[in-house]
Amino acid sequence: MSRRGAPAVAAALFAALLCIAPFLLSTYWVDVLDSVGLYALLALSLNLILGEAGLYDMGHAAFFAVGAYTAAILSTSLGIPVLLTLPASGCAAGLFAALVALPVLRLRGDYLLIVTIGVGEIVRIALVNDAFGLTGGSNGIFGIPRPVLLGWRLRTPEQLFFLIWGAVAVTVLVFGRLSASRFGRALRAIRDDEVAAEGSGIDTARAKLTVFVLGSAWAGMAGTLFAAKMTVISPESFGFWESVLVFAMVLLGGAGSIPGVLLGAFLVAGLPELFRGLASARMLVFGLALMVMMVVRPRGLWPRRAGGGP
């Protein structure tokens, strides 16, 4: 098997395994896989910002929240089918990201990290206090209609599975192309040395803004799927903890590596489920596992090869 062919075969095998998973696993585990898929969408979109462009964003849940609330409000009060709100959710999250980015993106490194944490907290507190009179305060919004796809109403975790993992597949293809493009190379140049990137003729301010808006808009669209899956959303689903988990997925898997980030999503979202047998000690073991995995593989479990493709 040629070196080029091996990853493609592995990817096809992985996709085939996923396709038959809902027919083999119990409903409980399919539901877990649905959550993993939503986290994978968030982690892949954060990977653009954090892994490719090296912007320390620890407030990704804020954009996820904007998208989810946009979908919930449009579908419950205007009766728009929830999946048709995808563009609106993406735009709302992207616009909010642009608003945040203009003053914030010029901050460097750790200053950006704390400010994005702050933005995430401000959004959560605004939702809890029902700042806009539309979000239902700490109770959130309920009665979001089930998603309808090609005339099918998706109710069970098995049906949602194909919607969510279909979205993950599209994301992997689009972001894989993006990463291999001129824009992707520009982002990695900014991550490795912003001054040198600027010197090579890259408009760094514009590239950073673009990637931040794009990644956030994608998180917003993941928010639509989340709202459609849950049918109830409330501020507690969009706290600092969610941002931290997604951040850990990207770095644990391997920043900038799409298979790595998928693996990260499986481990971070799935391990606490596997450890359920340990009862109250499961998060203790999870924290320990996170530490050990990072110490053993500092560059992530499945890092991107330097100079290689996605």
Partner: peptide, 11 residues
């Protein structure tokens, strides 16, 4: 990487 290790330690 150390940030993630720190998050693990915190949990």
């Amino acid at each position: 990487s150390a940030v993630v290790s720190a998050l693990g330690a915190s949990i």
